[in-house]
Design a protein around this nucleic acid. Structure first.
Length: 274
DNA sequence: ATTCTACCCTGCAAGC
DNA sequence: TGCTTGCAGGGTAGAA
């Protein structure tokens, strides 16, 4: 479900309720996620204090301090969410993990499709291979048109797949890639190497603007995404291309087309994007 | 080295 | 009404 704005929304929704609190209990109802949850997670975390939460790409890094200080990494996959629950409240069908805190708050991980993961990275989280290979944050200065142009080099890969590659830039998924290419007037299938620096400048600016707006709106709720505070995201009403196959283009009224690119639905305007 | 593809899993909507 | 099919916000491993 979540791309960068949704993960950011989750982080800011849950952090005020759990940061600085001490873990009293871990309940694992289902350990088989993308990778299995280590079976000694309760031993590791119980008694430790959650000092802060960091978002890195689409990962949430929960920093714990105590007898076995380190980082718990959580990815929400396609359908995952984290919410704050009351101690003793009834878990849903796919509520796989509860992290219970001393003040009575429960941080609850729910993920119907189980594409997410919960991994204990220990004290050297940045050395983990899943984090090491990641590209720059899209909202950082390191992410620029010049950077993209340089990295595109001689790649014949479609630009949409290029910018969705987390090694190129983190946090951009199918929705925001679709939207940014529409906004920049770039055909999603165009080869990465064939795009000018000027157009990459435009593309990076649109990615930054769209992601910032989405964060400000609390993310995009398509089905049941809710932030940590239980409120839905309001960005969906601002989507101009994603999910609008057949609808008239907002600029030229031409019906939007849908193609498959790397098995992902890709909507674009044949007239405005080249 | 890059670039596809198949797959992990459940739920939902559309079509018959 | 009920079954089948395809599709979904992600990312990896392994094949081409």
């Amino acid at each position: 479900m979540p791309e960068l704005p949704e993960v950011e929304t989750t982080k800011s929704g849950i952090a005020p309720h759990v940061v600085s609190d001490r873990v009293t209990e871990i309940i694992i109802r289902q350990s088989q996620l993308r990778w299995p949850i280590t079976d000694n997670l309760a031993t590791i975390l119980t008694g430790q204090t959650l000092t802060h939460i960091e978002r890195w790409a689409k990962y949430l890094l929960l920093h714990f301090q105590g007898a076995d200080s380190g980082v718990l990494m959580i990815h929400l996959g396609m359908s995952g969410s984290l919410c704050i629950a009351e101690s003793g409240s009834e878990p849903g069908k796919h509520s796989h993990v509860d992290i219970c805190f001393a003040k009575g708050t429960v941080l609850r991980y729910t993920d119907p499709r189980r594409f997410g993961c919960i991994l204990w990275l220990g004290a050297q989280p940045h050395e983990h291979k899943l984090l090491k290979a990641l590209g720059p944050e899209p909202l950082s200065d390191a992410f620029s048109g010049a950077y993209l142009k340089q990295l595109a080099g001689n790649k014949s890969q479609a630009v949409k797949q290029f910018i969705m590659d987390q090694k190129v830039v983190t946090g951009v998924g199918n929705i925001y890639a679709t939207e940014a290419l529409f906004a920049a007037g770039i055909h999603p299938k165009r080869m990465a190497k064939s795009i000018s620096l000027t157009r990459y400048d435009s593309l990076t600016q649109h990615i930054k603007t769209i992601l910032s707006n989405a964060i400000a709106q609390g993310g995009t709720t398509l089905k049941d995404f809710v932030g940590g505070d239980g409120k839905p995201g309001y960005f969906k009403q601002e989507l101009l291309a994603y999910g609008r196959k057949g609808d008239p283009c907002v600029q030229c009224q031409t019906p939007l087309q849908e193609i498959k690119l790397g098995n992902r639905a890709t909507v674009f305007c044949q007239k405005c994007q080249s």
